[in-house]
């Protein structure tokens, strides 16, 4: 997942970026003013935009309006130091999805960021279950039929992205765009290596089953190929009612 952070306060941006990278393992791009943020946001790579309201050059609300005028549906989390219901109502009506008042709790920010990304992709629960594969995005743990699978951070991030978009062909380019920030050298073969490793680890537990990740040559990857009609556990996006979560 890739997050655009628009915040002019360097130290705060630094902390937020570190938290977003270290915690949920998102790729983070940082824009320090409204215009730069607007430029960044024009690339369709972001799964979430964290937007400060008081920004130099272009304020957060204007940026948000520009975004929504372009029919950009990227979830937006507003950071505001302003109090008062009026400004919050204005923000939400302008197309913001959520807001946090400064000074906020970092844990709350991360939880809201994850919830917004989830919601933005049509999922309600942080745990995904596809064809016996369970991905818990809170613990960042992966099980297949009850067996925990140990993944590298990049492998996990690829799987997390795919699990948010089951049965959709995800191109290598899309994976690159959503998993790496601007500072990363884009090499599509990096993705190939990681996907290959990921597939090996996932299928190691059940070698006889169909591969979970299908490679569509020249087009990309697809998690959970279209199941045979009798397979009843193939409902995509079915969230498991885990009482502990």
């Amino acid at each position: 997942m890739r997050v655009l952070l628009v915040e002019d306060e360097v130290r705060l941006a630094d902390n937020l970026a570190t938290a977003l990278r270290d915690g949920p393992g998102f790729a983070v791009d940082w824009a320090e003013d409204g215009l730069a943020g607007d430029d960044f946001a024009r690339t369709p790579c972001y799964d979430l935009i964290v937007l400060d309201l008081m920004l130099p050059k272009l304020d957060g609300l204007s940026l948000l309006k520009r975004l929504r005028d372009r029919r950009d549906a990227t979830p937006v989390l507003i950071l505001t130091a302003k109090d008062g219901a009026a400004s919050i109502i204005e923000l939400l009506n302008a197309g913001a999805d959520d807001y946090l008042a400064k000074p906020f709790d970092l844990g709350e920010l991360l939880a809201r960021a994850k919830a917004l990304i989830r919601r933005g992709k049509g999922a309600a629960h942080p745990t995904f279950t596809v064809l016996g594969l369970t991905v818990n995005t809170l613990e960042q743990s992966v099980q297949r039929n009850g067996v925990f699978i140990d993944l590298s951070p990049t492998e996990y991030r690829i799987l997390e992205y795919l699990v948010h978009r089951p049965r959709v062909i995800v191109s290598k380019r899309e994976l690159l765009e959503h998993l790496y920030d601007y500072n990363w050298e884009h090499h599509s073969n990096v993705i190939e290596v990681h996907v290959s490793n990921l597939r090996k680890k996932l299928d190691a537990t059940q070698p006889e089953a169909d591969p979970l990740i299908e490679t569509m040559r020249g087009r990309g990857y697809r998690l959970a190929p279209v199941p045979p009609p009798e397979a009843e556990s193939s409902q995509t996006h079915k969230s498991t009612p885990e009482p502990g979560l």
Binding site: E9, R11, L12, N15, L16, T18, A19, D22, G23, M54, L79, A81, K82, D83, A101, K102, P103, F104, D105, L106, G107
Partner: peptide, 25 residues
């Protein structure tokens, strides 16, 4: 007053996030 509140809240937010980042793990 609004600007001062913004500056103060931002400064507190920085400090708070620094501390919470430190205690994340």
């Amino acid at each position: 007053v609004s600007d001062a509140a913004h500056e103060l809240k931002t400064a507190v937010a920085v400090l708070k996030s620094s501390l919470q980042l430190l205690s994340m793990k």
